[in-house]
Every structure is written in structure tokens, then in C-alpha cells.
Design a protein around this nucleic acid. Structure first.
Lengths: 152, 152
DNA sequence: CAACCTATGTCAGAATACTGACATGGGTCA
DNA sequence: TGACCCATGTCAGTATTCTGACATAGGTTG
């Protein structure tokens, strides 16, 4: 069960813990969203549109951490089901602004409440200063990870 | 760009930050593993086997956060390529212990070094106390998320 | 203006992971 | 002992996501 000085110790690796936490969060979100007929990417897309109306397909993809091709497929199904509407013509460039329909907004409301409850459960064991620390730490990790990768 | 009191504010949501960090980590790992002909699940499987030799397919699946069916497919390819060996018969029950071959161990060594460098970059902006706090915080999140979900 | 460069939307195919289902081994309990 | 229950390995089919490629819109630069 121990490690013999190998490269990465899974028991203590912050990378592994990060993946574990993210996986647990995703599972918990899927669980509460399933009864609402929604999955995590679904929800992420609607939430993004609620907070930043008029986002394009590519912008939504970046916000939901998927490729723009994947988001394109999702947007088509959301549009088919009446949750969002896409402009027929691009007001500028090729980007087609997308917006929530009343139906989409209503569906999001329930999902958002469910997700918020999951997030509250996730944070239930942490004090306010710890939560603030978590925010700073995660932002630092994100910044550092993107330095070389996207910079060069 | 602002939020109007909606359920979850993506700008400050720790859940969103967690997903963002995990996504950035995964992308950075994929980037360094690709030249080695490996992906993240690949690597996770080998690393698990190095630290806990003899794990079964299902145990590996849980450790890598995928289903046992997915891990089964991966193990077959790893076995075909000579990175691991699986016992032909189960010493007890149906679980087939899996072990790294010398080739697998050698391949893992390079991958492990690459992944460690990514993890170091991720932590480069954090002090030792901050890293300790990160560990505690992530463990708390994981524990809280799994409480109701797996408990009931 | 013309040649680039970047970003976007989209199509097609491949890779990856998942859900559902079944049979088997092992333990528990009446 | 026999009836359960749970975990495992595996097969099949489906769903999801990705990579690769192409055309187009707009800005930049000589």
C-alpha cells in the first residue's frame, strides 16, 4: 500500500485530489440533474446563457470546457427542445448570439437550485476563511497551469 | 457581465473554479503525455498499478474514476501492447490481479516525470502552508460530497 | 488594396466512455 | 444446506466527446 519513492504519490498528490474532488462534484451534480432531465454540460450551457446572454457557440464552449464542435451538437438539441434560440444571421462576423427562451429559463431555475444545494453540501465542512483560501488557491493553480501551455 | 442574483454565480462559484482547475490540469497532462503516446486514463492506470500492484480491473476503475467496463477495454489494450499482465485465473473470487511488465514500468517512468513537472507547475505559486490547506480543503469537499450521495 | 492571420460555424469520422444486461464467485443468514 | 445479496468480469449497444478539415467573416499590415 505504500509508495517507494515513485514519481507521484496518489495518496498525497494534489493533482489526484483535484481530480477526485472534481469527479465527486460531477457525480453529485449528475445525480441531482438527472431527475430534471439534464446533464452537467446541459446545465453549464444554460447557466452561462443566463448570466451572459448572447454568447456565441464558441464562447459557450470555452465556458463549459468543451470543444466548440461538442457545444454545437448540444446547442442544436437545446434549440430543438425549445430551451434556447440562436440568431439566424450573424450581426457581426460569424458568431451567432444565443439566448434562453422562457422555457429554458424556467428549466434552469430548478436546475440551478439543485446545483446550488450540491455546492453548499460540498462547502458544508469549510469555514468562510477556508472557502476564501480555496478560491485563491484554485485561481492560482489555474493561472500557473495555463502559463506555459497557452502562453508559448 | 454581471449576475442579477441568479442561483450560481460562475465568477465566484467554487464548483466552477474546481471544474476549471481540473480541466486545466487535465489539458496540461494530456499535452505532456501525448508525445509519449499516452493519455490521462492510460497514465492513471499504470500509476495505480505501480503503487498498488495486483489491483483488479474494478479496483483500477474506481481509482481512475471510470467505469469498470471502460477500464476493461483499456486493460485489454495495455495487455495487448505488453504494458501489463493479468492473471489467467482468479486466486480468489473473480478478480484478476494485474501487474506492470518491465516495459510498462519503463513507460510509466517517463510519464510520471512529465506529470510530476505539470503538478509542480500547478503548485508553483503556492506556499507550503497553502498547499497543506489545499489538501485539507479538497479532502473536506470530497468527504462532504460523498456523504448523502453514497451514504443513503 | 491585397495578403495574411485569427476566430467562427459546420461537417465528417474516430476515439472514448457510458448504460444495460448477463453469468459467476463468495459471503450472509434463515 | 439453500436462498439471498453483493461484487466482479465481460459482452453488446449507445451516447458523448474529440480530432481533422473546410469555408467564411473581420481585422491587421505591408
Amino acid at each position: 500500500m505504500g509508495q517507494e519513492g515513485v514519481g507521484v504519490d496518489l495518496e498525497t498528490s494534489l493533482g489526484y485530489l483535484l481530480k477526485e474532488a472534481s469527479s465527486a462534484l460531477r457525480a453529485a451534480m449528475e445525480e441531482v440533474l438527472r431527475p430534471l432531465g439534464m446533464n452537467v454540460t446541459h446545465y453549464a450551457c444554460l447557466e452561462l446563457l443566463a448570466q451572459r446572454p448572447g454568447l456565441s457557440n464558441s464562447e459557450l464552449a470555452r465556458g463549459a470546457f468543451v470543444t466548440r464542435q461538442t457545444m454545437n451538437v448540444l446547442l442544436k438539441s437545446l434549440e430543438r427542445d425549445g430551451y434556447v434560440t440562436r440568431a439566424a444571421e450573424a450581426p457581426v462576423g460569424k458568431a451567432l448570439p444565443t439566448r434562453l427562451t422562457p422555457s429554458g429559463r424556467q428549466s434552469l431555475e430548478r436546475a440551478s437550485a439543485a446545483v446550488r444545494s450540491v455546492e453548499l453540501r460540498m462547502l458544508s465542512g469549510l469555514t468562510a476563511p477556508e472557502q476564501a483560501a480555496a478560491s485563491r488557491i484554485l485561481r492560482s493553480m489555474i493561472h500557473s497551469l495555463r502559463e506555459d501551455t497557452e502562453g508559448a
